[in-house]
Design a protein around this nucleic acid. Structure first.
Lengths: 333, 333
DNA sequence: CTGAAAGCGCTTACAG
DNA sequence: CTGAAAGCGCTTACAG
């Protein structure tokens, strides 16, 4: 294994100074002839600038820390892929940290992220404490929450319009003629879970209906299935809004497979996210689509604005459409 | 935003030299009293060592580059999560690069990875050209292929035993009484696709059966569905081995949803991977389980051995069990 | 054990 | 435009 080739090696071969080499690769001014000599020497030697060294001096690592949980919920790998693509286009790369959903180790994770001198942090599906917010602020590292809101006004966040979306679902279910409507919520320790539950309740109220029951599905298939059974069997619900698609699939499997109920004949099911599985015929789930592409763009734009100090803290909510499929009874006419 | 706190700040406050601070944090020798003074000062100042600076001098970034495609196939996010967890335990972190499945941009991706001075590279579901292999070797960066083999002997790789696994499936299908057996293969441009096809053909031959037809599913749901239709409708297959679960779900959806066939009554379907969706009752897919945990451990162990120069190139194939569920007819008795 | 010094591979004022 | 020099925040021989 050969010694690493550095800018000095290139300089020697090209017959210019090391600074000249640096200038060529950092896009600073350099004459055509210097450019040419340097590029040829670099090519011959297989030289590429060391980004860590560059980062040390510029204070920009071009690394974005991404904290993510729930990778078994297809929404997240999909979002990670799109975030990665958009960030790569801008010359940034993702250092990924996986955590459990309910907030353990998040602090430790953030510390490690800061050690790596990331230029910014995207926290997907993870809540952030005030201390952590302060610490990042003190370190000058901008944070954007993806698919999670934040109580305070200090952190940027990008979500779909969870309240409006859930209200749309409520309206749809009532219009479908359902009278015993229940909600298997997302984890009520998350803003997303809370906002969807709030919006749903409000939507029902606006349509003159009431919620028969609500249980916390904890974003888990098994828990959601159990809660759905409680709502349907014990409380006689004939329609369920399930807080995300991932849980909704578990609910459908349990209702059909174990309880032998028909969907939507016996129970209507509506989810939230519109992950690609939702359109698979085995589920054909009616669900509110999260506008992932626009959420991703907004997240990256916000983060870049913060990093480059051209933008400010943003709280963005994007409306998504209801994807009407066959898992829930459709309104007549 | 405060200026970054450095080891010098800590040294000043603790009344020791900057080297002493460094020693405390790098675990080199330091007296109890120095340790104490430094830790207190660091705590008070909120100091944490800059890993980039450390990496510059040690030549170890503690970053592992992970190149991955097909994130819509649940096998990969699952593997990424486990790789990330195991690596994190060892003090490494993952810089993630997403690429398309069929090998474009892989070269560019690797270059960027090298720019970041990664200590090693894991390529999941990505093939590597010989030039790329050489380049990484020249840079002294070890590469381990995950879930892909490699023609040459120079690259380490970890897979399940694709041939044995596929042979096991062939045996199972023949024992189930099927006589018209087809294969929707994984992309034949990948070693995984090829090995499974080879093993399947061999398994059939060993069981005294022959393959009715084989089509390339390209690891895509839609393509696989189309090829399955060809095999079943045009060639009268009554059993299909589909090269991975992700395609198998697409095939099942198409067969049941569009062609109105019953599984396994009309057609038996067997997949490969045993992603968690496979056990969902909507599919209940008979499939060969990839031993993901062991593959991940083997991958990380191999990579660590290479990085620390304590280990050698490895070619590891791990056997996985056939998970018998209801998507394929079971042998009698 | 500990401090002063050199150096990792770059970027960036500063003169010329 | 270009080179010499300082410096980013660390680690690590080298003396003491």
């Amino acid at each position: 294994m050969n010694r690493k080739v550095t800018s000095l090696d290139v300089a020697l071969r090209a017959g210019v100074s090391q600074s000249a080499v640096s200038r060529v690769f950092s896009g600073a001014s350099a004459s055509k002839s210097t450019q040419k000599k340097v590029r040829e020497a670099a090519e011959a030697l297989g030289y590429r600038p060391n980004r860590l060294a560059r980062g040390l001096i510029t204070g920009r690592s071009r690394i974005i820390g991404l904290v993510v949980a729930y990778l078994d919920n297809q929404f997240y790998p999909d979002a990670v892929e799109r975030l990665s693509n958009v960030l790569q286009e801008q010359g940034y790369h993702i250092l990924i940290f996986t955590v459990r959903g309910h907030g353990e180790h998040v602090e430790d994770t953030f510390n490690q992220l800061l050690d790596y001198q990331v230029d910014g942090i995207i926290a997907a599906s993870v809540g952030i404490s005030d201390e952590l917010t302060d610490k990042c602020a003190a370190a000058g590292i901008p944070v954007v929450l993806f698919n999670r809101g934040h109580e305070g006004r200090t952190l940027s966040h990008v979500t779909s319009n969870n309240r409006a979306g859930a209200a749309k679902i409520a309206e749809f279910l009532v219009a479908g003629g359902h009278t015993r409507i229940g909600h298997v919520s997302g984890w009520m320790g998350s803003t997303t879970g809370v906002d969807r539950a709030l919006g749903f309740a409000q939507g029902l109220a606006d349509a003159g209906a009431t919620l028969v029951g609500q249980e916390d599905g904890m974003y888990r298939r098994d828990v959601a299935a159990e809660m759905a059974e409680k709502l349907v069997v014990d409380q006689g619900c004939d329609a369920l809004f399930v807080g995300n698609d991932h849980m909704a699939f578990g609910v459908m499997d349990h209702l059909r497979g174990t309880l032998n109920l028909r969907i939507p004949d016996d129970v209507s099911i509506v989810g939230y996210d519109d992950v690609s599985i939702a359109s698979w015929v085995a589920y054909d789930l009616t669900t509110l689509r999260q506008p992932t592409n626009r959420m991703v763009s907004a997240t990256v734009d916000t983060l870049m604005g913060l990093i480059e100090r051209t933008g400010d803290t943003q709280h963005i909510e994007i409306d998504g459409p209801l994807m009407i499929r066959s898992s829930a009874r459709r309104p007549k006419g």
